[in-house]
Amino acid sequence: MKTKITGRVWKYGDDVNTDVIFAGKYTYSISDPAEMAQHALEDLDPTFTQRVHPGDIIVAGKNWGCGSSREQAVICLKQAGVAAIVARSFARIYFRNCINHALPIVTCDAVDGVESGEELTIDFAAGTVTTPGGVYTFPPFSPEVLEILEDGGLIPHARKQLGIKE
């Protein structure tokens, strides 16, 4: 995991649910991550998939990812190139799904200091998010969560736990 990332911001509001991140009608019919990425945020922001660049960062208000347990709502964003999600708070299952797919996730109020199109920098070691409007701090990950992130997600982590080598 990189210790510091800078990226262009896509800013959204509160309570963005998994249905608008990745619609339920696709959950059992699309299994290819690249195809999932083509439907990312389809019912929230139709411009997203055309204009997202690798390394972009999503910034949002409270309760990002509420609703369904579908982890395609994480995979579609990661596959589309999103490098991290910064929100005031996350829905619980969404938070776990991000960790399990090694998509860095930061809980702080950076949404107050940045607009779409501007840049922000996340420093994971320092626990800070630097925006045009100010610097926000976030608590460190618990050791258990950090280990999964550093292993590259839950599948590599489980392989390590079980002592499975190539």
Partner: peptide
């Protein structure tokens, strides 16, 4: 409690899960 798909696969493989 609800979990994601990858997590369910890991529970099948390891028989355990971490919970806060």
């Amino acid at each position: 409690a609800g979990i994601g798909r990858t997590e369910a696969a890991a529970v099948m493989a390891t028989g355990q899960i971490w919970l806060r």
